[in-house]
């Protein structure tokens, strides 16, 4: 399979950044296709972030039962991911995927 990649930006705010080395903005180059040759989706990205990017062991702060933890908002190019097909949304080059936690205090 060709190792074609697409550039995307992933951001974490609302307290989630602390799970990702206190870094809010991550510029990533992700494979265009998954291991089965399908176009990569946001659902795939969430798993990828957990495995490849997140160093913090507290995975369940981000993903619970295979889904983004309830209380974490996902915005795809500033739009609620519910408007974009949620986890099934196919990533496009230069997409901005923002994860915002509503769970953290002030």
């Amino acid at each position: 399979m060709a190792s074609e990649t697409i550039p995307i930006t992933v951001e974490f705010t609302g307290g989630l950044e602390m799970l990702f080395a206190d870094q809010r903005k991550h510029s990533l180059s992700v494979p265009a296709k998954d291991e089965r040759g399908q176009a990569v989706t946001v659902g795939w990205l969430v798993h990828y972030l957990c495995v490849e990017v997140m160093k913090d062991p507290r995975k369940e702060m981000f993903v619970l039962d295979g889904h983004v933890r309830p209380g974490i908002l996902v915005l795809i190019n500033d739009a609620d991911w519910e408007l974009e097909g949620e986890a099934s949304y196919a990533l496009q080059a230069r997409d901005n995927i923002l994860f915002v936690s509503t769970l953290h205090g002030g």
Partner: peptide, 12 residues
């Protein structure tokens, strides 16, 4: 509102 996140932290 100050406390709410702690549950999540503690769970984790």
């Amino acid at each position: 509102s100050l406390r709410k996140g702690m549950g999540e932290m503690a769970l984790a």
